[in-house]
């Protein structure tokens, strides 16, 4: 890790009943520069913090607003139980790290770093996946545009594809988009080279 993780100025919501654990946790969060609020009620999707720390021993399905979906912010689970059902619940809420109860203060910073890193990694993967899905979905357009170019220019498939690809590279647009322009007749057919 090159950059020292820094949480100064972050807002965290701790979803847990107040007890000795939460007191210790919030003290540790404060010295990491994090402003934490404690609540034992569902988190509103309208006012999301930078980070959620949730009691996976007692948590229920509507506690977090992204039930089963991708979490909107990094999630850390607090867990005393070893029951597979509770671990599954934590995973289901998108937890990227677990802090075991009773809380050892030395577990807090590593868990935050890990959960934030996993959240960012998941987000990047999801974005990439969405981009690739879009491209796969639009693949027939590329195929159709290649056929149109072949017919118009009397060239083989390979040359038509190269024209399309060069055009996309020059204009810094995805091939699928250039293909859509061509098929829609929105612009003249690109020349070779």
């Amino acid at each position: 890790m090159r950059e020292t993780p820094n949480f100064t100025g972050w807002q965290a919501t701790v979803l847990h009943r107040e007890d000795g654990n939460t007191e210790k946790l919030i003290r540790q969060l404060r010295l990491l520069g994090i402003h934490a609020t404690l609540q034992w009620a569902p988190l509103s999707a309208a006012a999301l913090p930078d980070l959620v720390i949730v009691d996976a021993d007692q948590g229920w399905d509507d506690l977090l607003p992204w039930n089963g979906e991708t979490p909107a912010c990094p999630v850390v689970a607090l867990l005393g139980s070893e029951a597979p059902g509770r671990i599954a619940w934590a995973l289901g809420q998108g937890a990227g790290a677990i802090i075991a109860k009773p809380i050892a203060t030395s577990a807090v910073y590593p868990a935050l770093v890990m959960a934030v890193s996993i959240h960012q990694e998941r987000k990047a993967t999801a974005e990439k996946l969405q981009y690739l899905e879009e491209r796969v979905r639009l693949r027939p357009l590329v195929h159709a545009a290649v056929e149109k170019l072949q017919a118009a220019r009397g060239i083989d498939e390979e040359s038509a594809y190269a024209i399309l690809r060069n055009c996309a590279m020059r204009r810094r647009l995805p091939m699928e988009q250039i293909a859509a322009f061509i098929l829609a007749g929105a612009e003249p057919l690109p020349e070779a080279g």
């Binding site: 100064t8 010295l31 520069g33 910073y109």
Partner: peptide
């Protein structure tokens, strides 16, 4: 500033 949060100055 054990966690280099910049609690007293710029972090790094």
């Amino acid at each position: 500033d054990p966690y280099l949060t910049g609690r007293n100055r710029q972090a790094l």
